[in-house]
Simulated scan of single mutants.
Amino acid sequence: MKKVMLMVAVAGMIVAASCNNPKNNDTESEMTAGEKLDQTLETLEEHKDHAHATLQEELAKAEEKVNKAKADLDDAIEKGDKKAEESARKTYDEANTLWEKTKATAREAGVKVEEGTNKAVDATKDAAKATGNALDRAYDKTVDATKNAADATGKAIDNAVEKTGEKANKVADDAEKKVKDLKNR
């Protein structure tokens, strides 16, 4: 019983930890958000399957104890040994109680593992969606900033061309005046 509870606690911690994994710098930069999401979902399924297998193993052990205790009780009854029968009946009752508790715990743990996995999957999907939305917003801001920079650059070029044109016209006017002054002398 304690093993089952410990296993359920460990499974819950694994599921929770899988959502908050520290980044592995070697692979993190090489994985896309979609690949990371797929990997996280796969890991969650693996943990869920492992928890289910462990629960089934605990149930099988408890059932085996019940069957052995039942066989011992039947054997004691068949031999007519009242003291052995009493001891076997007590062992059988304890094993049966343990088996029922194990089944109840396994059902409860299975539901909790399933719920935990579903919540982790939903949280992972929500995080992926939020990341996608953030990337979309960042893209939009980048596009807007690029357009603004292009507009500002265009205006700066227009101003430079205009000032260059004005300067060129002034230089041409000055040159024309000097030419007239030279002719009039």
Rank of each mutant, 00 (worst) to 15 (best):
A69C: 11
D72N: 14
L73E: 04
D74W: 06
D74G: 09
D74K: 10
D75F: 10
D75L: 12
D75T: 13
A76R: 05
A76Y: 05
A76W: 02
K79C: 05
K79F: 08
D81M: 04
K82D: 10
K83P: 00
K83Y: 07
K83M: 08
A84G: 03
A84M: 03
A84L: 04
E86M: 02
S87C: 03
S87I: 11
R89T: 10
K90H: 14
T91N: 15
Y92V: 09
D93P: 00
D93K: 01
E94N: 06
E94I: 14
E94G: 00
A95R: 07
A95Q: 09
N96M: 15
N96G: 06
T97F: 09
L98C: 11
L98Q: 14
W99Q: 15
E100T: 12
E100A: 11
T102K: 06
K103I: 11
K103C: 13
K103V: 14
A104E: 12
T105C: 13
A106L: 09
A106D: 00
A106T: 11
R107T: 06
R107S: 00
E108K: 15
V111T: 13
V111C: 04
V111W: 05
V113C: 07
V113M: 05
V113Q: 08
E114V: 01
E115H: 14
G116T: 07
G116N: 12
N118Y: 02
N118P: 00
K119M: 12
D122N: 04
A123T: 10
A123W: 03
A123M: 09
T124M: 08
T124A: 15
K125E: 10
D126L: 05
A127C: 04
A127N: 12
A127R: 08
A128H: 02
A128C: 01
A128F: 00
K129Y: 02
A130V: 04
A130W: 02
A130F: 02
T131R: 11
N133P: 00
N133W: 04
A134D: 11
A134R: 06
L135W: 02
L135V: 03
D136Y: 00
D136L: 09
R137Y: 08
R137N: 09
R137Q: 12
Y139A: 08
D140A: 13
T142E: 00
D144R: 05
D144F: 01
A145P: 00
A145S: 12
A145I: 06
T146C: 08
T146G: 04
K147N: 05
K147P: 01
K147G: 01
K147D: 03
A149L: 08
A149Y: 12
A150Q: 08
A150E: 11
A150C: 10
D151E: 08
A152S: 12
A152V: 10
A152I: 09
T153I: 15
T153Y: 07
G154M: 05
G154P: 03
K155P: 00
A156C: 04
D158V: 08
D158H: 06
N159R: 12
A160C: 11
V161F: 12
V161C: 10
V161L: 15
V161E: 13
E162G: 06
T164I: 15
G165H: 09
G165E: 13
G165L: 13
E166M: 07
E166P: 01
E166H: 09
K167V: 15
A168I: 14
